[in-house]
Design a protein around this nucleic acid. Structure first.
Lengths: 243, 243
DNA sequence: TGCTTTAAGTGTATGAATTACACTTGTAAT
DNA sequence: ATTACAAGTGTAATTCATACACTTAAAGCA
């Protein structure tokens, strides 16, 4: 395999995962305290190194799985970060991925055994290296993508209520939405199926559960149609410094 | 520097540049015939390898400069490509960048000495490895970004006419635009300055030259305002499969 | 039992933005 | 002087985004 290009430098390639979850009305990140030097004990994203035999995507999935036990998770590459001194341990290129997971109690347990914690996006501690910048970029990417694709559902349980969904969108956009306009818009897509069952936890009246119609969405997407939630325009414009 | 992480694999890291230009009413890419094995003689993006002492961004700029002699070019990271067998020469991670350049005759000359050619986006040859996929993604990124930021100007001479600008946008969006609506929209931004001079090449009447008001845009951008050209919405939605 | 409390759920009217559309103008060439 | 060609110009119709307030269902408690 390595017959060519012999004369060029070789580099460590890391993967870092920005893992988003939604719980108790808050958008959260799964962070951990670093267990090794350098910067041992400081808050960090979950990361790991690329090995010869795996693709970037595979490596990112493996690393997410190590921490959460989860597979088949919505994951997208964010960006490669390659400043010379970004990691004081060694020259390292890091490819960041963001993941959207449904927080549930099993995963919560596994994460805890790794010393990981779900921390609200509004209360993030300082992170090592350039991890805060990665998080910043991931938030922007998430916002832009959410407005074009129904990825919010990746962060909610299979059954969810409209108030929950709205609250999720509000967390992502960092902005209050009008209840009636939100419901009109989201139901207009025809991608939500109303269930004959209510969530009684958050109110006496109870809110109907809905589920997302993945099959229908699939069909639409294939035909070139895509979901687009219209958040106030200025919001998107502000966030659009990145591709 | 390399005290930590000793036990992990090291990798070749390449940079590949998708170089966009606009000429004769067509959006073009600067491509070259590969001068070395493997895949010698086949069409390829301009690329090179990352060295220990430079950041990804610096390396991408260096590589663009090698081919075109240009500096201070609009360049953005697109994505990292890391399939195990993407380059048959060796396991290589490639970070792709796209660049927007103003094609002019000097650069054209330099590029030619490297065996590079400007080729219309509509007549692209087969490219080596995963370069076609990179180009595909770059087109999508360009489209999305163009609708939010006035980067079209990076592809035109300092002085340009509105018909030229419209033609550029049409090439990028792959769609006909209405002349009156386009002019209204673009002039409404207040970012174009009309010059007292006409381009007579393309018509007897001649079209007034305009230039882009970078300073004014800068001020707007700092205040959170950003240019947004409204291409037909479906267009953008279709293209939004990537971040 | 009925009164209170709480969040869920519902429709319309106004203004803004997008779209569609056709004729006139300026100039060079004949 | 006439022709040919692209540049340049405005308005009306429609669609979309926004703002906004009351009713309903059910639990808890007097």
């Amino acid at each position: 395999m390595t017959r060519y290009y012999k004369e060029y430098d070789h580099h460590l390639v890391a993967l870092d995962c920005i893992i988003f979850g939604f719980d108790a009305g808050e958008l959260k990140l799964l962070l951990l305290k670093r267990k090794f030097e350098p910067a041992k004990g400081e808050w960090s994203l979950m990361g790991g190194f690329l090995s010869k035999s795996e693709s970037l995507d595979d490596a990112a999935s493996r690393i997410l799985n190590q921490l959460t036990g989860l597979t088949n998770i919505y994951m997208k590459q964010l960006n490669a970060f390659g400043d010379v001194a970004r990691d004081p341990g060694a020259r390292t290129i890091s490819v960041a991925y963001y993941a959207l997971v449904k927080i549930d109690d099993n995963d919560r347990l596994l994460a805890e055994t790794h010393g990981a914690e779900w921390i609200s996006i509004n209360k993030l501690p300082a992170l090592i290296f350039d991890h805060s910048r990665m998080v910043q970029k991931a938030m922007e990417a998430l916002r832009r993508r959410t407005s074009r694709e129904p990825i919010g559902f990746e962060l909610l349980p299979v059954k969810f209520t409209l108030p929950q969904l709205q609250s999720l969108y509000e967390s992502i956009c960092q902005e209050q939405l009008d209840k009636r306009n939100f419901r009109k818009q989201i139901l207009e897509t025809g991608l939500l199926v109303k269930l004959n069952e209510k969530d009684k936890d958050s109110s006496k009246k109870g809110a109907f559960y809905y589920k997302f119609d993945h099959k229908k969405y699939q069909k639409f997407a294939e035909q070139g149609f895509m979901f687009q939630l219209k958040v106030k325009r200025e919001q998107l414009i502000k966030e659009s410094t990145e591709v």
